[in-house]
Amino acid sequence: MKINICHLYPDLLDLYGDRGNILALAARCRWRGLEAAVERTSLGDALDFRSMDILFIGGGSDREQGLLVEDLMKRREELKAAIADGLVVLAICGGYQLLGEYYQTSNGEKIPGLGILDVWTVAGDKRLIGNVAVELKPRNPVNVSDLQTLQTLVGFENHSGKTYLGKDVLPLGRILAGHGNNGEDGTEGVRWHNIFGTYLHGPLLPKNPHLADLLLELACERRGYFLPLPGLDDQLEILAHRTILERLVGTK
Rank of each mutant, 00 (worst) to 15 (best):
R40A: 14
P203E: 07
L25E: 04
E157N: 11
I175Y: 05
G186Y: 02
W31D: 12
E135S: 00
T243F: 09
E221M: 13
E246G: 10
L55K: 01
A240I: 08
L216N: 03
W192G: 01
G108P: 10
D11S: 13
D18V: 10
G33P: 03
L236G: 07
L8Q: 04
L248D: 06
E101S: 09
E39T: 14
H193I: 11
R127N: 10
P203L: 05
H193G: 11
A81C: 14
A240K: 08
C29V: 09
L34Q: 09
R247M: 08
I195R: 01
D185E: 08
G224V: 10
F196A: 00
Y199W: 09
R223A: 11
L236D: 12
V144I: 15
D11R: 11
N181T: 00
Q65G: 12
R76P: 15
H7D: 07
L136A: 01
R28E: 08
G178R: 07
K2D: 14
G161L: 06
F49I: 06
A219H: 00
L170V: 05
I22R: 00
E39L: 12
W120K: 01
T251V: 06
H210C: 11
G33T: 05
V154L: 02
P10D: 09
N143V: 15
G58T: 01
G186R: 00
D168W: 05
Y16G: 05
N182A: 11
K137Q: 03
T198Y: 04
N182Y: 12
I3F: 12
E237Y: 13
E77Q: 15
C220K: 11
L136C: 02
K74V: 14
Y164K: 01
G86C: 15
L170W: 02
E64N: 12
E77R: 03
I3R: 05
D234V: 14
G155L: 07
W31E: 12
V169M: 03
V88M: 14
F226R: 05
T198C: 08
G155R: 04
I111C: 13
D48T: 13
V144R: 15
F49Y: 15
T198R: 00
F56Q: 03
Y16Q: 08
L79I: 14
L13G: 11
V169T: 03
A36M: 08
A133R: 00
K74F: 10
R63T: 14
R50V: 14
A37T: 14
A36T: 02
V38M: 12
L214V: 14
Y103A: 11
A91M: 13
F49K: 01
I5M: 04
L147H: 15
I238G: 06
L147A: 15
Y9K: 00
G20E: 02
